Simulated scan of single mutants.
Amino acid sequence: MDVLSDLLHRAHARNALVRQLIQRPPWALAFTGAPPLTVVAALGGHASVRLDDAGVAPVRLAPGDIALIGGAHPHTIADDPSTPPQAVIHGSRKLLVGDGVAAAGAMAGVQRSLGPRTYGDGLPGATIMLRGACELRGEAGVRLLGMLPALAVVPAQPRTRAALDLLAAEVARDEPGQDAVLHRLLDLVLVLALRAWCGGPGASVPSWHRALADPVAGEALRLLHERPAHRWTVAELAAGAGMSRAAFAARFRSMVGEPPLTYLTGWRMTLGADLLSDTDATVAAVAREVGYGDAFAFSVAFKRAHGVSPSAWRRRTR
């Protein structure tokens, strides 16, 4: 499994919520209590997305564009950045704001259901939006969010547009297994958007992601993720690349930004942290799972990485 696939699998979004909004200008919705990752896409018409706490300039979405909001930032989706919010949405709760009667009239369409998971007025000239809210899991989710700025925009392209069209077609259905279909389609949109953004001009991505395209460092990263508990040595990784130990170590460090075993330790600490949070395995069992022969050595490395002991981490995250 390649590194990005491994990270996405371990940080797998859960409790995903997908909604379609169909609204005529002027309109604006403020979302508070946002999840770690939000996907906003314009299907028809234009919209703006602005973060309400990060000092980031608003972005404008054209049809087919996707905005990725990395981090639990309260944000506003509107027809224009200057439109004041007419409602604040926190989870499934909506609070009208502004001039009572005017706000109620303006938001009547948003309050009216047009079908499963679809809200708005449905009249000609309306903007059609999709919004997906994703929960991410553990320290793997933290690593995934480290790939993104607070607000990233992926311009429309054929592959992402095809996935969006499929998600839009399914969001209004209500058939057996529909939630599972929507979760997987949202995953597809997310993966395609992440891949497109990371490969786009000006994207600031982690060094390890840039290293994936390198035949030497990329293959070593794949091996480390495929078998994190193996007792890797630099010599073994170098032999697999057909290079001397010194040449391989220099190549890996120049591409990834840290030595191979340092990277491996960091990844093991990510895996260990999530095992402590998600399972009832003993510290010794977690240590063996991530490649440590005894609990003491694992605990020392874990406290160095996370600032607390494995037991304290488990209590805190539970």
Rank of each mutant, 00 (worst) to 15 (best):
M255Q: 15
L164G: 03
E170N: 11
Y119R: 15
G293H: 09
E219D: 13
P58L: 06
D187I: 12
V181C: 07
R316N: 12
R131I: 00
R173M: 11
A34H: 04
L190T: 04
Q157E: 13
A152L: 11
D52H: 05
G125P: 00
A229W: 05
V290W: 03
A172P: 01
R304W: 01
S311L: 01
S299A: 13
D214R: 08
S92D: 15
A312V: 07
G70W: 06
T118M: 08
R222Q: 13
Q157T: 02
A217Y: 13
L61Q: 05
W208F: 11
D6L: 10
R143N: 06
V97A: 03
V39N: 03
P260H: 03
R315M: 15
D99R: 07
V171I: 10
P35I: 02
P26C: 04
H9F: 08
G98C: 10
V283Q: 00
D214V: 04
I77W: 12
I22K: 11
S311R: 15
A150R: 05
A67L: 02
T32G: 13
K303N: 14
M1C: 07
A34M: 11
A163C: 09
D165L: 10
L271T: 13
P201Y: 14
V39R: 07
G202R: 06
S254H: 15
P215K: 14
S277C: 15
R161P: 09
G100H: 14
V189M: 03
S207I: 15
H9W: 10
A11K: 00
W197E: 02
P259M: 14
A72C: 08
G257R: 04
Q157H: 09
V154F: 06
E170F: 05
A34G: 07
P124Q: 12
L29C: 12
A281T: 05
A156Y: 01
R253D: 14
G132F: 14
V18Y: 11
A196R: 07
D280R: 12
P81G: 04
T233F: 00
L144V: 05
V154A: 04
V18M: 07
D174Y: 02
A47P: 13
G146Y: 15
Q23R: 14
L114D: 00
L136Q: 03
T32I: 14
L144E: 00
S204T: 15
P58D: 10
L185A: 08
W267Y: 09
